[in-house]
């Protein structure tokens, strides 16, 4: 399998009045062709900034650092702004969280879809229109040709997000980044949009990064999962590994929070992780999760925690506890 995107030691620094904020620290992962990687984590864990850092769309005050950032083998770290704008929308595209505000109110759907294509490809206006109609039908919009003349405010949130998806697909990108694409939508629409994304991703054999805090979503569509906490990837592996044998206490706690049909008893308390995320301003030594962790030790305060291999290959986690001990903890939780 060829890698579409390789990210190694990606960090983002943002100067704020209280010091230097480190919202993303040393994030590494790979996305292969035709693969969906889910980045999971609670609000403010740095998952959206990771996506923006890959797209080079960070706020101007933010600084991006990385060892390696390759798209189809091409280095994006030293690419010029001009080259990056050629890549964006063409080889990689992004779908945002807010379909209500992500389309320009002043232009028709057709105009905004077409310009995504005409910017990167030598096509006629008519060809761009045909492509737009084709993709609108693909994303399940009826009467696509007449929709082209409509303005964003005439469409519902679900339709707008479908338009955003079609727009991201206009140039046939190798990588698509979807940042919580269903958060702003009705629950009934959420599943439709996710399944749509998953099927399109399979059909066009794209690499996809799906950012979400919804583990139910992850279970349905992810090939691989990266769990983020306080700016770091604290566990990564195949979806099956993460769900069946979570290693990190945070991942275990996270999975504890969702009810499992047939297993969770009516009236029984769901798990919760007490405490709050530590501040990410300034330097931080030790484990970021220690304040909220049931297994915290003295070493968690003083020792920098690096990723280590779990029992199965391709599964890594960032904790001082040994693999066997983590597995035992998971079993004890599961049987409790």
């Amino acid at each position: 399998m060829s890698a579409v995107l390789e990210v190694e030691e990606l960090s983002v620094d943002i100067p704020v009045s209280a010091g230097l904020l480190h919202p993303v620290q040393g994030v590494s992962f790979t996305v292969n062709r035709g693969e969906t990687v889910c980045i999971v984590g609670e609000s403010g864990c740095g998952k959206s900034l990771t996506a923006l850092a890959i797209m080079d769309l960070l706020p101007s005050s933010a600084r991006r650092l990385a060892m390696r950032l390759l798209l189809d083998g091409e280095d994006m770290l030293n690419a010029s702004e001009r080259r990056m704008s050629d890549i964006r929308g063409s080889k990689m595209a992004m779908i945002f969280q807010e379909p209500m505000t992500s389309l320009n109110p002043a232009y028709t759907i057709g105009n905004q879809l077409a310009e995504a294509l005409t910017r990167h490809r030598r096509v006629s206006r008519e060809q761009a229109r045909e492509r737009a109609v084709f993709l609108l039908e693909k994303v399940g919009i009826t009467a696509a040709a007449s929709r082209l003349r409509q303005y964003p405010h005439q469409l519902s949130g679900g339709l707008r997000q479908r338009v955003m998806i079609a727009m991201a697909l206009m140039c046939g990108p190798d990588l698509i980044i979807a940042d919580e694409p269903t958060t702003a939508l009705d629950v009934t629409i959420q599943a439709q949009i996710l399944l749509l994304l998953a099927s399109l991703q399979k059909e066009f054999q794209m690499g996809m990064i799906l950012i979400t805090h919804d583990l139910g979503v992850v279970a349905r569509v992810a090939d691989r999962v990266a769990v983020m906490y306080a700016g770091q990837v604290i566990e990564a592996g195949d979806a099956r590994q993460i769900f069946q044998q979570p290693m990190h206490p945070y991942t275990q706690g996270l999975l504890d929070c969702i009810p499992v049909p047939g297993k969770t008893q009516r009236g029984a308390h769901l798990g919760a992780i007490p405490g709050i995320v530590p501040t990410l301003i300034g330097d931080f030594i030790g484990c970021r999760f220690r304040e909220r962790c049931n297994y915290a030790m003295v070493d968690c305060v003083s020792e920098e925690v690096s990723s280590r291999d779990a029992v199965q290959s391709g599964h890594t986690y960032r904790c001082l506890l040994g693999a066997q001990q983590c597995a035992d903890n998971a079993k004890r939780k599961a049987s409790a």
């Binding site: 797209m55 769309l57 990056m84 704008s85 050629d86 890549i87 964006r88 929308g89 063409s90 595209a93 992004m94 945002f96 807010e98 505000t101 992500s102 389309l103 320009n104 109110p105 002043a106 232009y107 310009e115 995504a116 910017r119 990167h120 955003m164 727009m167």
Partner: peptide, 22 residues
């Protein structure tokens, strides 16, 4: 600072197009 300008940039539009058209 609006979302649709971010969208326009994510489409790879030239800065002139982003600034004047959008």
């Amino acid at each position: 600072s609006s979302d649709y300008i971010r969208t326009a940039r994510a489409k790879g539009l030239r800065s002139g197009t982003v600034l004047f058209k959008h």
